[in-house]
């Protein structure tokens, strides 16, 4: 039996989740896609009083969420977002999951159909450590954040900050807000489309909307 008291509580939240949470307005309706064990969702319910829902692939993840009192359905970002009505949520969140989807472009499209806004965070594959790893070792990068061997990684669609902003342009999606995070979790005040942003940001958090 899952002991609710032993579950991760809001104060333990990771920095990127914290940043995603900061982009969400209090009291809004939120769908967290790929919510894992519900850490972010739980945090949003506790601190921002959101009406939250989640989608999670693993049964264990869903069970943990349900034990926390969260409403989470077992499902897949690639397949199951189509089942939600248009603009059912104020925000659709996708944290550190984009690179693991089969059709990232369709998923982003769906996020902004289901949510009035979307918050997307992902690791930047053009981060200097990744580049150096590939350039020097000649092997697929493995860092502390991305510690899977190429043959077993769930991350099948890596992109760079630049790739992402170009895709947003193509899809007529506006980037309302963007926070870049360095390798040590520090916030970088670089322009998102700059060379140094693409080189020094380990991850990016984007607030998106479509007019």
């Amino acid at each position: 039996m899952i002991d609710a008291n032993k579950l991760t509580r809001p104060q333990d939240i990771r920095v990127d989740l914290q940043l995603v949470a900061e982009m969400v307005e209090s009291g809004s309706r939120v769908l967290d896609v790929g919510c894992a064990e519900g850490t972010l969702l739980d945090y949003l319910v506790a601190t921002k009083n959101v009406d939250g829902r989640g989608i999670e692939l693993s049964q264990e993840g869903v069970n943990t969420c349900v034990a926390k009192g969260l409403s989470v359905v077992q499902g897949d970002a690639d397949k199951d977002l189509v089942d939600y009505p248009d603009h059912a949520f104020d925000y659709a969140l996708l944290s550190q999951t984009l690179q693991a989807t089969h059709r990232p472009k369709d998923v982003i499209d769906q996020l902004l159909r289901v949510g009035k806004k979307a918050v997307v965070s992902f690791p930047n594959f053009a981060y200097w450590q990744c580049r150096a790893y590939l350039a020097v070792k000649g092997r697929m990068p493995m860092t502390s954040d991305l510690d899977y061997a190429w043959y077993e990684t769930p991350n099948i669609h890596f992109c760079t900050l630049r790739d992402f902003t170009v895709l947003c342009q193509e899809l007529n999606i506006s980037i309302d807000e963007c926070v870049l995070v360095g390798g040590k979790g520090q916030i970088l005040n670089y322009e998102v489309n700059s060379m140094r942003a693409n080189l020094f940001a380990a991850q990016g958090v984007f607030l998106l909307s479509r007019d």
Partner: peptide
């Protein structure tokens, strides 16, 4: 408010 699981 719905939760859903498919049990293997």
């Amino acid at each position: 408010n719905v939760s859903f699981v498919e049990i293997e």
